[in-house]
Every structure is written in C-alpha cells, then in structure tokens.
Design a protein around this nucleic acid. Structure first.
Lengths: 350, 350
DNA sequence: TTGAAAGCGTTACCAA
DNA sequence: TTGGTAACGCTTTCAA
C-alpha cells in the first residue's frame, strides 16, 4: 500500500503539492508554477517531464494558496434573490456563459428571499476575495451592498438599482413591457382594457402599469383602461380577478386584459373559461408577463412579455469584467434591456 | 482623502489585514486571531479593543489565507445537474438548511445538463479544497467523481448512485412512488389503468413503472395495467397520449391514468377535457409525479407524488458532515427516501 | 492571557 | 530557460 495521498506525519490528511511535483520531476518549484501558468516560458522537454510528475502524483492546484499568493481570484460570486424564478436562473446562465469566455467561473448562492441569507453570502464572497460579485438583490437592502463596497468588492446589480448604490446595474424595462402589452391589445382592436396586478408598491408591477397607461394615453381617449389590483401575483389572485370579471354584466366585461404576471393571467383564464362561455381571445384577449413556463403550457397558450434574463446576466458580467480589468478608467453604467413580445393564442388566436 | 483601503505601494489594491488590526489595537497578531476564532481565550477588555479596531478598519477575514493556514474550509460545494428543476433546487435548500446548523455554507454550481460544466465545477471545488462536495450527477458520468475522489475530496451523491462509485448516496424511491400512485387509484376502485411515460430507459421512470406493476400484480388479476410509452415527459407528450385516449371507443377508455410526471399528466388532462366530455376524476382519475407547480396550479388540481428533495439535501449533508468529521470510522451508506402521496381533485374530486 | 514565530502552497521576482 | 526566495494573510504552537 502506497503512502502517497495518505496521511502526513502530522496525522493530517495530505495531498501532493507543488514541491512534491518539483521534487519528483527534478526541477525547481518556480518551474512547476511556470508550466502551470506560463507554459510558453518553459522548454517542451521540462513541460513534459513536469506534466508526467503531475499526473503520476494526481496533483491538484490549491486555489487558496493561489489566490493568496497572486492576490486575485478567477471566480465570480452571484447572489440571487430567488433561484426558483426562472428569470433569475436565466441571469445565472447568461453570467456563466459570459464568464466562461473570460476563463472565469461563477458560483451561485441562493438568498431565497431572505435578507439574512443574502447578508451571509455577500460576506462569504467578500471574505473569499472573489474577483467580483453579481447581485440580484432583495428590494431595499442597501446595507449589504454598502458593506461589500466598503470591503473593496466590486459589485454589479441586476434587476434592482437600490437607488443609492454606487455600482453598475442592469435592469429590465418594465415600463416599456407594459407599454408593449397594452399596445399589442390596442393594435388588435381592443378598446376596453383591464390592467390586473399588484401591489402597486412593487416597482416592476407599477412600471408595467405605467407603461400600459402610456399606450392607452396615446389613443387620445379611444381606449379605456381599468385597474384591478391584487395582493400578489399568483394563480389564486388571478382566479379571484377572473371570478370578479365573470360576474359582471355583459356590458361591463372588458375585451382585453393585461395581467402583470403569467401566473395571474393563467388564473384569470381558468376562471373565465370555466365560469362563463366567453371565448379567448375572440371576446377577451389576454396577455401576461414573464414568459413563465405555465404560460406556454396552458391549454390556450398565453401571450406574454419575455424578460431578457439571459442577456441581463451576460451584460452584467461584461460590466463586472470591465470594472475588474480597468478599475481606474471604469465609470459606472446603468443599462436597461428591453423585454420582447411573444404573441400566442390568447391574443391572436390560432 | 484617506489612504486606507486604497492602493498599497505595489499599486495593488489593498484591504486591511490582521496585522493592521493588531497594530491599531496594540496587540499581537495571534491575539487578533484568537478573538476571531477563540473569543473565550481572550480578556473581555482586549476583545473589545480588538473588535473596535476591526470595525474602524472595516477588516474582513481573508478566506484563502484562512483555508491555507488551517488546512480546512467551511464551505460545501454542490454541483447540480439542473437547477431549473425544482426537485433539485429543493435539495439545495435542504443542504443549506443542514449546513447552516453546522456553521457551514453551501455554494451552488449548475451543470445545466452539460457534462463539460459538471467537470469544470467538480474540479473547481477540488482545487478549492472545499470541506466536501455534494453531487446530483448527470447520468453515467463516473469519471468526474473518480477524479474528485482521487483528489481526496469527499463526495456524496444525490439521486443517482453511479453504481460503481465508492461514496455515500441518497436516493428517492421511485419504485415505491409508482406503487403508491397505482395503489391509490386501485383503492379508489379503478380497474383499468394506464401507465403513461417514458422512455423506459430512464431509470426513475422505469422504476415508477415497475412499482405500478407491482401494485397491480397484488390484485391477482382484478386490475389491468396498460403501458403507453412517450418520448419524453413534457406537456406536449402528454397531449399526444391524451389525444390517443380520447379517440378510443368508450369500452377501451381507462378509468385511471398514472403519468410518470406532472407535466405529462397536465397535457393528458388538457386534451381529454377539451376533446371529450369525459369528466375528471369521475370517469378517469389521473395522478402525476413530482409535485410540480403546474400540477397544483392547473384548473383541476392534479394528484401527485411529492419527491423528498429537501429531505434528500438534508440527509446528504448530514452524511457528508459525518464523513468529514470522522473519516476513519465512517462507512459509506446508501439512503433511500420515500416520496409521499398528495391526493388532489384529479383523483378524489372535491 | 498574551506574544513571537513557524508554517500552509502558491506566485512573482531576480539572479544565475 | 531555470532556480532560489521573499511575500501573501492567516492559524497554531510554544514560551513568556
């Protein structure tokens, strides 16, 4: 039985290190480091010799030592408000995609809507001296980012500018999304619209509502827009709205509904279809927001606005990398990405 | 303008370190380290003094240095096959929950069904010398785990035993889930069952099918079970099956359907309800698998089997921690967790 | 209880 | 091109 890869004299479990490799290959430590990091600075012969030693020993670099000595890391930390929302997961994918091109990797931390977790993970990445931090924050959580900045970390914000924060940020244009949704229905000839969603204190929902209003305003009174608030944006909230609409007299039933989220739209549609013989989209055209899977999986696929999650992740990573590479010339930017309309059966029929 | 937190003489950006804190507090480095790690070994007076210095300087520990000096890390890496599947995300939540109790943190890496990403992240965590690795692997990817083990990392497998692997693993009992699903329908008096799903080469689906068969076999011929394979387990596959069933003569229509996944069940239900006047659950009882959100959000909520994702994450972390703490007495275990039946309107009505 | 000093495994620099 | 060696920031042991 070999003693390699086993326990050192201290009883502490041991893995081969650069010295072991150097010894085995009969070269100096610095040379091994060079074949690892600057292969071009080394003879092919020694490179091969060293590589052989590495393979035989099963050597793996120690990142801690590397980061310590080099003073830099090549990983990016991404603290995400809610991984169960595919919008945010898409951001993670975009970030990985972009980071990979730069030879960096992205580590994920799910704050799961909990302030405390967000704090823990931000601190973790600060202690880790990661190259930079991407943060899709919990609304109104300034302190955590101030603290990270104080610790000299570079952070880029996604989907929430946390107003005061002195960082780059990448946002989705919810106002424009709301505009596009309403415009879509108006272009389809709908004149009595409802905007369903809430609470209006939720910035994205509020912005979507404002956008819808703007589209309506452009018609100079030709189109009406009614606002039906909800507590949250779940299927259940949607059913409640759908039920309310179903109970109305024929004359007061809208011919177009903009839901602030797909789940809401789904609930609305379920209620209307089961409680009345109103047909979608003939009598009511319905559009949601988010491009949630439930929307295209529903029996009448629901039109929606697709958020640019992947793209946001990419752009945020680009900004972060730029800030890392040229900290002195870098100036913070705020980039706003547009959602795109996906028209499906619930508005345009088949 | 202060020079603290600015650039050191090397032009390299600098953060206060233990020495700075020690100097400021007028104590030795070792003392600072003690107030950080062994507060009880220090006078309250010095503790306060040092803490003050830490706060004033905005000092943050350097994890790389810590890990290097101590030879241990307190983070666990979790490489996950597919974060967009809530089953796996639940595992991550369970792992975090359990890790937190032990004062450890979990970093996530999404391999996104790509072998190459899985390899990259496994290596990353190996180089990181994390305390241990949790891996929900891509089927049949042995090499990656062999390599991690060779590098002396401890790994616990989730949801796939990768047969040969010499590790602990935590699995879900799909066979029993299939059994429970079929048993549920049989107990409800259904006699002509269909098991829908595939491909049968997919181990979990296959196991669920076997379980259903077992439940049927127990009835000694009182119940029939027909198998309708699909290519995948999507809503579209489900609609195809639903359509096929809808087209049958009355006599050949089953009174109970077990779908290998909720999305499948959803598609089946959509087709049947829209193409026929068959009622669910009166004429056909329908049960899915996974406890996917789409299942409880559908208009007739679909009965299902809930996978113990959260619990699997917890248990896996417990096993990992045990292996880390007592490597010599530890013996690998294989733990199988049971899914639980959630009966909803699609089988029991309202 | 506190201080001093020896590593931990790398990188980066300078001399050979 | 290679070798030797001083950091990197911390933990830990041993003396004081």
């Amino acid at each position: 039985m070999s003693t390699e890869n086993a326990r050192g004299p201290g009883g502490r479990s041991t893995v081969p290190n650069i010295s072991d490799v150097a010894e085995r290959a009969g070269v100096a430590i610095g040379t091994v480091s060079n074949v690892l990091n600057q292969p071009h600075k080394v003879t092919e012969a020694t490179r091969v010799k060293v590589q052989a030693a590495i393979d035989e020993l099963g050597f793996v670099r120690n990142r801690a030592a590397r980061a310590l000595a080099a003073g830099t890391s090549n990983t990016i930390g991404f603290v995400i408000i809610d991984l169960s929302n595919s919008f945010f997961l898409d951001m993670a994918r975009g970030a990985e995609d972009e980071a990979e091109k730069a030879g960096m990797t992205v580590l994920l931390a799910n704050s799961d809507l909990k302030d405390s977790k967000q704090t823990v993970y931000m601190n973790l990445f600060s202690e880790d001296r990661v190259a930079g931090i991407l943060l899709a924050p919990i609304p109104n959580s300034f302190l955590v980012i101030d603290s990270a900045k104080a610790h000299n970390r570079r952070v880029v914000l996604l989907n929430d500018s946390l107003e005061a924060a002195d960082s780059c940020c990448v946002m989705a244009n919810n106002e424009h999304g709301g505009y596009l949704a309403a415009k879509h229905l108006i272009d389809l000839g709908r004149r009595n619209l409802v905007f369903a969603g809430g609470p209006d204190t939720l910035t994205p929902v509020h912005d979507r509502h404002m956008g819808a209003k703007r589209a309506v305003a452009e018609t100079n009174g030709a189109v009406r827009l009614e606002y039906l608030p909800t507590r949250e944006v779940t299927v259940v909230d949607g059913r409640r709205i759908g039920h309310a609409i179903s109970s109305r007299s024929r004359a007061r039933i809208p011919d177009g509904i903009i839901a602030a989220a797909d789940l809401l739209a789904l609930g609305i549609m379920q209620s209307i279809l089961s409680e009345t013989d109103i047909r979608v989209p003939e009598q009511i055209a319905l559009i949601g927001y988010d491009n949630n899977r439930s929307a295209w999986d529903s029996h009448i696929p629901i039109s929606t606005l697709s958020q640019p999650g992947f793209e946001m992740g990419r752009v945020a990573t680009q900004l972060l990398l730029e800030e890392i590479r040229s900290p002195e010339t870098h100036t913070h930017r705020r980039i706003i990405l547009e959602p795109s309309l996906i028209a499906r059966e619930s508005t345009i029929g088949r």
